[in-house]
Computed example of a mutant assay.
Amino acid sequence: MTATDTLTGTPIALVGLGKIAIDQHHPSILKSGAFRLAATVSRNAGLDGIPAYTSLAALLDNQPEVTAVSLCTPPQVRHAMAREALEAGLDVMLEKPPGATIAEVEALTDLAAARGRVLFATWHSRFAAGVPAAKAWLAGRQILRGTITWREDVRRWHPGQRWIWQAGGLGVFDPGINALSILTEILPAPLRLTGAELEFPENQETPIAARLSYLTGAAPIAADFDFRQEGPQSWAMEFETDDGVLSLADGGATVSAGGQNLSQGEALGSEYDGLYARFARLIATRTSEVDLSPLKHVADAFMLGRRLTTDPFIE
């Protein structure tokens, strides 16, 4: 018997050990009373004291007690692993974006339903501290216009990660989809893309910047996504309404309206804790949760966006 055998909680495996898995998923699993980290799967990394495997098949062969996996691999390879896990009878949590295409995530949703498994497509930014307060405040007001500024330094947040520049890796929409996940959560009316400009480095397959025009009802929403931000990072939204201005800062952690703080938190502070608490509830109720609206808006941007070529990106 090992030390982990004496622990309580659903045994879960962390699949993919990149920056987000190590910085966010691992600490949140350790803090969760609902899960215990039973194993990891990665081609070239591991965690001290945790059984490690280089394939999902090896995990399944050696630790049949594992009943859930959290998939943190790049989106281009996630569908095959999620399918393997669901077919093996595991419940599956997907890091955002849930896949490289809408169709493949829909196929996973159907498979999970057919096999009676739980599938959770996560949007961590919806669990930012200020998002519920922002949603409640906007619910009773008419939005007149809005601006979204989501600018960060790709070298800081995705160092050496080639997958993000390859087709299916989304480029600047990897962080931009966080903004879209908040928008689709808090807006009282649906969002519709009306125009887009996407800047592609001449040596990469995905965009480094995007300027997007939306409508929610009759209100225009302008979004500016950029991977070239140096210094302070910008994850902010502002909505002018018929009854004052709502501002979100730090990725939705801080929200103010009419000069009053509605919520104050830390960027990324408890978002992943919230994800694992939600996953535990979904498992307990045998319920899947798959909302593809943020990914659909990214797909719309690639369909409708005018492509511009910019300077090459060199790490």
Rank of each mutant, 00 (worst) to 15 (best):
M1H: 14
M1Y: 12
A3W: 03
T6I: 10
L7I: 11
T10K: 08
I12V: 15
A13K: 12
L14M: 09
G16A: 14
G16K: 11
I20K: 07
I22R: 14
I22C: 08
H25D: 13
H26G: 08
P27H: 12
I29Y: 06
I29R: 14
L30D: 06
S32P: 12
G33D: 11
G33R: 15
L37M: 09
T40V: 15
R43D: 03
G49Y: 04
A52H: 08
L56W: 05
A57Q: 07
L59Q: 07
L59G: 05
D61H: 09
P64M: 10
V66H: 05
A68N: 05
A68E: 03
V69N: 07
L71C: 09
C72E: 12
C72R: 09
T73P: 09
A80D: 12
A80F: 00
E84Y: 03
E84S: 06
G89Y: 05
L90H: 05
L90M: 09
M93Q: 13
M93E: 08
L94K: 09
G99N: 10
G99E: 07
A100P: 02
A103W: 02
E104M: 09
D110K: 13
L111P: 07
A114Y: 07
R115A: 04
G116R: 09
L119P: 03
F120Y: 15
T122F: 02
F127I: 08
A128W: 00
G130T: 13
G130I: 05
V131N: 04
A134Y: 00
A134K: 02
K135R: 15
A136L: 06
L138D: 00
A139E: 11
R141H: 04
R145N: 03
G146L: 04
T147I: 03
T149D: 01
W150I: 11
D153W: 01
R156C: 04
R156V: 09
W157N: 13
H158Q: 12
W163I: 06
W163M: 13
I164D: 04
G168M: 14
G168Q: 14
I177K: 07
N178T: 07
S181R: 11
I182G: 00
I182A: 00
L183S: 01
E185H: 03
L187Q: 12
A189V: 12
A189R: 07
P190D: 04
G195L: 04
A196E: 05
P201L: 14
Q204N: 14
A210F: 01
L212F: 01
L212C: 07
L215E: 09
A219G: 01
I221C: 05
F225E: 01
F225Y: 07
D226R: 08
Q229S: 08
Q229Y: 01
Q233C: 01
S234M: 14
A236Q: 10
M237C: 02
E238D: 07
E240S: 01
D242C: 08
D243Y: 01
V245N: 00
L246Y: 02
L248A: 02
D250C: 01
A253C: 13
A253T: 03
S256Q: 12
A257M: 04
G259I: 00
G259L: 00
L262W: 00
L268R: 08
S270F: 03
E271C: 15
Y272R: 10
D273A: 15
A277W: 00
A280Q: 08
I283H: 02
A284V: 05
T287F: 04
S288A: 11
K296H: 06
A301R: 11
A301H: 03
F302G: 15
F302A: 15
R307Q: 08
T310S: 11
D311T: 10
P312R: 13
P312W: 00
F313N: 10
E315M: 13
